[in-house]
Each structure stands twice: as C-alpha cells, then as structure tokens.
Design a protein around this nucleic acid. Structure first.
Lengths: 325, 325
DNA sequence: GTTCTATGTGGTACCGGTTACACATAATGA
DNA sequence: TCATTATGTGTAACCGGTACCACATAGAAC
C-alpha cells in the first residue's frame, strides 16, 4: 500500500501539501490539487486511519455497550446508531456487557487504548464510577447513569400510563402488572406510569416483579392465572408479554376475549406474535439515531442543546386488546 | 496518559526493555520486570493499540458484515463472534450492508484503512470480486462467497429434509413449501432438502417463493389458504413461519390441529410464539463461534484444518406439529 | 517604496509504539 | 584460557500520518 510520501513523490510536491489536500485545510493551488489527485488515483492511495489517529489522538470509532445484542431491544438501537455513525464517517464497535461490571470496565479500558472517539452506553447497572472522569464523550441510552452524562430515553412513565389506560378503556377492571426489576430506572418509571393510570379508579390490581425473560414470565403468569382471576395484563416488555400470552394459551384462556394484554417496547416480536401484541412502542430507531447524533456533537466539541431527551412512546393497538365503543 | 517513554524513565530502563516486558519477548531480568511493573502500576500506563498497530501493521479489530442486525438471525451470530473475539483480545466492528453491494465495498475499504485484522462476512449476494485479492483473512458465514474463501454454514439441505420428514411423520400429506429467494445458496439448499424428503412419497406439494419477511409471508399464505387445502407448511425461516401462523389464525384455521407448521432457524422468535413453533434449529452460536475461531487462526497465519464446515441442524419439536404415535 | 496581508509550499518534529542491531556481561565448553 | 553461547539492555530508525514554523511571492494599502 502506498503511503503519503509515495504520493508526494509521485506528484512532485511535499507531504505537507498532500496532507493539506487530503484534509481540505490551508492553501493549495489548483495545479497542486490536480497533480495530487492524479497521483492518488494512480497509486490507489488510501490514507491510514491508524496513522492519522496516532497523530491527531482522535479516532472514528464509536463504542456501543449493550447488555446483550440478542435481546430484541438492542439490534434496532444498534442499527440506528450504526446508520448515523456511518453517515458521519464513524465505525461502530459492539460490546456485550452481560450487565457484568467487570466486563464493562474492561471494555471501557480496552476501547480507550484503541482511542475510541466516544461511547454510547445502554447498560443497566448501578455502579457508574468507571464512566466518570474518562475525558471521552459518553451518551447514556435508556437509563441515566449519572447526572453529568447526557442521556436519552423513552418517556416510560407516560408510555406505561397510556398503555394501562388503554386496558382500562378496553374494559379491564382486574389487572396484573408485570413490573420489571425494581431499582432499574425504566422499570421503575413504567411501574409508576401504571400506578398513575389505575390510581383512584377502583381497579383491582395485582403486581409481580418479573425480569425481562420469556420463560420466567411464562412460569410466573401460569401460576398467577391459577390463583387469581384477572382480565388484563400490563407487561413491561414485549418479551414478558409474550410469555404471558403463552401462559394464557396453556391455561385455555382466550386472548383477547377473556384476557387482554399490553406489552412494552414495540419490538418486531410484538408484531410477529399471533394474535398481534398491542404494545407501547418505543421509537428505538429514533432513540438510537439521536443518541448517535448527540455523541458525535460531543465528539466534535459542540455543546448539546439538550442534555436529557425524552422521546414519547406510542401505543400500537393490535389484537391482544379490544377497544370498546 | 503516560506513554512508554514515561514508563521507561520512571523505571530507569530503556523503552526497548519496557516493550519487551509488555510483549513477553526476548530476555528481561527479574529485577527489570519488577521495576517496570511498578512504574506501569504507578503511572496507570496502558499501551496505545493505535501506535502498536501502526508499527506492527496489525490490529485487533475484526469486521463483521451482516445484511441487517435487526434480522433475528444475526444477533446470535454476532454475539457468539464477539464472545470469541473478546476471549482472544479482539474487538468487533459491526457493519450493516443491507445487501447493498456499494455499501459493502465501502465498508471493506474503510475497514482496510483502519487496519482490521480480518472479516467475517454473512452477506447474501452474488458479486464477490471485491473480497478477492484483499490479503486480509476472510471467513464467510451462511453462504459461500468464493471457493477460495473458507466458509461455515448449517447443513441446510439435511436440516430441511429432517424438518419436512417431521411433517410427514406427523401425518401431513398436503404440504406447502415456502421456499426462500431462489439463487440464494441457503434457500436453494433448503428447498432441495424439502424435495429430498417428499420425493416419491405421494405427497401433494405446493411451492411458493417467499422472501424472509413477515408481512409478505402472511399475505402470501392468506391467499394460498383460500385457494388450496393444505395440512402442513414447511417454511424456510422462522419469520415466514410466524407470518404463516398469523395467516392461519386469521383464517380461523387451528394450528396444529388443522395445519401443522415447521419453521427454520431456531431463533428466539420461534420459542416465544404461541403456540411454540416447531423449527429446524441452526446452531447459530456455534456457527458464529467457529467462524470467529477460524478467522483468528487465519489472522495468526495458521493453516485451517477444514476450509468448509457444515454444522448439523437440529429439529426442535414444539407445539405447531403433533408427532403421531 | 515600504509595509502588510493573502496565498502557496516545504522541512521536519512528533504521535507512541516495535524491533534490528550493537554492545555488554556471565556462564559454558573445549 | 579462550572461544562460544546465553542473557540482558540501550540506541535509534521506522510505521504513516499531522501540523507548526519558516519562507517565498504577489498584490493591496499607505
């Protein structure tokens, strides 16, 4: 592979001039441009980003830390981030943290060594000291990690309220709320939204805490269905809603005739279930794209206009609920 | 951030000695090790991978090119690759090609500039010239891109045969085969496997070509169900099987009592549907992990023992089929 | 005719590692 | 005892860019 000195020699100019040409910086004559362009073409020259990074101490890598890309919530996010990153000339590095603090710290360390330009963190645990004092831009997604770190999320409380209202509007009076792990920001917010909706409305509620896990959700709901009688479920994720649907099916309970279900997330899964799952959709793509844009602004040293962004959720009514006239 | 010269100075040795220490190369006295370790510790020194890459012309980045990470097939693959990469000290770069040739070429070019150590390509189109003569190791996954490039895939033909046999064993005599896009290696193989299974068995077959897309699958199957009478469907992906399930539901056809369905892939989706989708599972994790291992061997300059690996598929029997005694 | 500014170019130190080579010294073997 | 080998360390060139600084020229301003 040709390097910048080869190009300079072929074009009969200095490396400084070539560098200026490549970066559109400083003064260059038209003649020089022409002759350099020709040399670049002929030698099929591609500048080494590594050398550039070493020199400028900047890179065009963005690190994305997610708990597990297999969780259907994250691919869409990753996709959006990658799209934006690509448009701005950045490359996305994917890291699965498994919610493991040590793994996460390690990633941060490794990527720092590789001069990443910034991080987007969609991680879910409490300790966040290792993100402080990093002098690398960070944007948090879905969950606030520290007041000093900009973050972007869905308006979970309002989303959950809307979803629950919809159950109420559809006639449910006896509702199971499958809340997510307490202590987890988004899960807490959704639970709060659920409570907002049912408060003072003479609704009988049952509340269980259930991790975002299909099998566990199925098992828990199976048990609940034997114990109490309910006509609606507000699940705080599509995956747990899917588990609930399966439990209902096993118990011979018809959805939505005997039991209505609302999920949360708006992932592909929700649309591909049968019957189609009514769900509170997060605009994951928008969230990811916005996070990426914010990060890139930070990388470029710009000030953010907003350091905290809440994206409204949208109710997608499908076949697990029946709106009443 | 401290650099290697700072460490050398602090330890009272030369940079060469520090470098040797860091890379476990050449002779170093115990005393030198001790004093360098101390300096590294004190300065919280982390070697710059960028500088190292520039010098050695090697990097610890692996590029993964997939059509779209949102397709549930790929996250598991990506996850496996990332796990193995991490274990060997590599970092994964995620690229979504959208099956777009130009985008793909661009990624290859960009990543080359960034000195990626190798590529894993799970891409789906025919032109592959741009991968040739790259002098960077490449491993193809799911689809053979060129005879010179090692590849790893599921034994799709045999998998499809097993899946179809299962429909036969379960009593189906009138089967719809939703084959994938013709010209696409895996889709062709699965179709061949289907044909292997039904050949000479006096089975009535209907064949439609259907992209791996939920909505399209649903629409196509809805139409088919009005036109012909079938008692089994072999879908060549879980997503299209899910579409078929929805179509059956809309048509009031009970699965599995009136219509049995077998999917393909073994993604999460299959297990989270209601009823649970019987499917031919690819061992995606194993596939990804093996691809990563192969790539790393290539990167290290080792010869591969096998340049083409077929991983057996496994039938997961769930509730969309009923095995008969 | 000076001074100033805009334009254009080149030389070279630097980013932070690796490594070939030179040069010690100690241990081993004949 | 001397040659040979194993062990240990340092100097400096190199990887391929960037960018500071010096310098040259031409036209404008005074």
């Amino acid at each position: 592979m040709a390097n910048i000195r080869d190009v300079a020699k072929a074009a009969g100019v200095s490396v400084a001039t070539v560098s200026r040409y490549l970066n559109n910086k400083g003064y260059i004559s038209e003649e020089a441009k022409r002759v350099i362009a020709k040399a670049v073409e002929e030698l099929n020259y591609q500048p080494s980003m590594i050398a550039r990074s070493l020199s400028t101490k900047q890179s065009t890598f963005i690190g994305l830390i997610v708990p597990d890309i297999v969780n259907p919530f994250f691919p869409e996010l990753a996709r959006a981030i990658e799209d934006v990153a690509l448009a701005y000339g950045y490359t996305l590095i994917l890291c699965n943290s498994d919610e493991d603090l040590e793994k996460e710290i390690n990633y941060v360390k490794t990527l720092q060594q590789k001069y990443v330009a910034g991080f987007i963190v969609a991680s879910n645990h409490v300790e966040a000291e290792h993100y402080m004092g990093l002098d690398i831009p960070i944007v948090a997604i879905d969950r606030r990690i520290h007041s000093s770190i900009p973050y972007i999320a869905t308006d979970n409380r309002e989303g959950a309220r809307i979803g629950t209202e919809h159950l109420l509007d559809s006639g449910c009076r006896n509702i199971l709320c499958m809340r997510g792990p307490s202590g987890l920001g988004p899960a807490d917010d959704r639970f709060a939204g659920f409570m907002d909706a049912v408060k003072g409305k003479n609704i009988e509620t049952h509340i269980i805490e259930c991790p975002f896990h299909f099998d566990i959700a199925e098992t828990m709901v199976k048990k609940i269905l034997q114990e109490v009688s309910i006509d609606g479920i507000f699940a705080s994720s599509d995956v747990t809603a899917a588990g609930a649907m399966k439990a209902a099916y096993s118990a011979g309970i018809h959805v939505p005739n005997q039991l209505q279900i609302v999920g949360y997330d708006g992932t592909m899964l929700a649309s591909q279930l049968t019957p189609g799952l009514t769900t509170v959709a997060q605009d994951l793509y928008r969230m990811g794209a916005m996070a990426a844009r914010m990060l890139i602004e930070l990388i470029k040293g710009q000030e953010l206009t907003e350091r905290e962004v809440l994206i409204p959720a949208e109710l997608l009514i499908r076949q697990t609920t029946r709106s009443e006239a």
